[in-house]
């Protein structure tokens, strides 16, 4: 019994220390931001009912800058040229209706710079994305069109590439801002990999344009799930200014489901051992429970009649 009391004292002081340096200290260091469940409550609900056919006609104007591969519209420029013109490569719009929040998308089409919360970066220069809808009706029509062309199923990887991948590379998944790293091989004679060098040159140019546009290179997201808490990531994506005032990161406007897809991908790449931990953990702990039980029997047999 005395040993249990001693154990209680040790456990108590250990837990107080843990509480102090982990949950408590982190609650002091990181400001608390309320999570709003990707509801975008600052944006008024759009009541107009959209017509996909009318939206399709309006979307022809989008194709001047964007590709819509789902509707067989190719990109007007390659990513590097596009980044020279716009700062970053405009996204392919096939997944817009699937990954983005409907209300957000409608407001973004009407007033991009304010909806994306990047007005502070564009005080004396125009935002590359112009307003594409003059009223709620045309915005709703476009949204209806994008929803009509969006695929039923979006993979986590596709959601990531659409929502984050043109600014954030993910080198552990071989993803760059201009697409996947090509599988190349160096020349066996010269030991030089010309294809790779060409690709790297393009990537360097793209990054250069992006840094001029955004002020700094956005971070690689390979292991962002280990570097930032889950809570930080969702509140930051929902409203970047709330966590990092002045950041160039726009409010992307992902829906709740869209974010879940993106996060799933971040976790798959950034924490690939999670399923393995869950599979191996119980066996290792089970082994030590058995070990301890046998050790207890040994201990009892050795200490029998000693006291």
């Amino acid at each position: 019994m005395k040993e249990l009391k001693i154990l209680a004292v040790v456990v108590f002081f250990t837990l107080v220390t843990y509480w102090g340096v982990e949950p408590y200290a982190h609650s002091v260091m990181h400001k608390h931001v309320e999570f709003k469940n990707f509801q975008y409550e600052d944006l008024k609900p759009i009541t107009a009912k959209g017509d996909a056919a009318k939206g399709q006609a309006l979307a022809a104007a989008c194709a001047g800058c964007h590709s819509i591969k789902g509707a067989k519209m190719p990109a007007p420029m390659d990513p590097v040229t596009a980044s020279a013109t716009y700062g970053v490569n405009p996204p392919d719009l096939t997944l817009a209706g699937a990954v983005l929040d409907e209300k957000y998308l409608a407001h973004f089409l009407k007033d991009p710079v304010h909806t994306a919360m990047v007005a502070h970066k564009f005080k004396d220069k125009p935002y590359p994305m112009p307003s594409m809808a003059t009223d709620d009706q045309s915005a709703a029509d476009l949204v209806a069109y994008f929803k009509s062309i969006a695929p039923e199923e979006v993979t986590p990887k596709e959601a990531y590439e659409f929502a984050c991948g043109r600014c954030h590379e993910m080198r552990y998944a071989k993803w760059t801002q201009i697409g996947e790293e090509p599988k190349t091989k160096p020349n066996i004679q010269t030991k030089m990999d010309e294809e790779k060098l060409k690709f790297d040159q393009k990537l360097a140019q793209y990054k250069d344009h992006m840094v001029k546009y955004l002020g700094k290179l956005p971070p690689d997201l390979s292991i962002i799930v280990r570097a930032r808490s889950e809570d930080f990531l969702k509140t930051f994506v929902e409203d970047p200014q709330s966590q990092l005032p002045g950041t160039a990161m726009p409010r992307v406007g992902v829906s709740k489901e869209g974010y879940e897809k993106v996060f799933q991908y971040l976790e798959e790449v950034g924490d690939p051992s999670k399923p393995k931990r869950e599979a191996v953990g119980p066996w290792v702990i089970g082994y030590f429970i058995l070990f301890t039980f046998l050790a207890y029997l040994w201990y009892k047999s050795q200490w029998k009649g000693l006291k």
Partner: peptide, 19 residues
């Protein structure tokens, strides 16, 4: 024998933390 028993308990906690 007692050390090994305490060690067993310790390793249960340790591997709980690891996983």
């Amino acid at each position: 024998s007692k050390d090994v028993f305490v060690l067993g308990i310790y390793f249960i906690i340790y591997f709980y933390l690891v996983f």
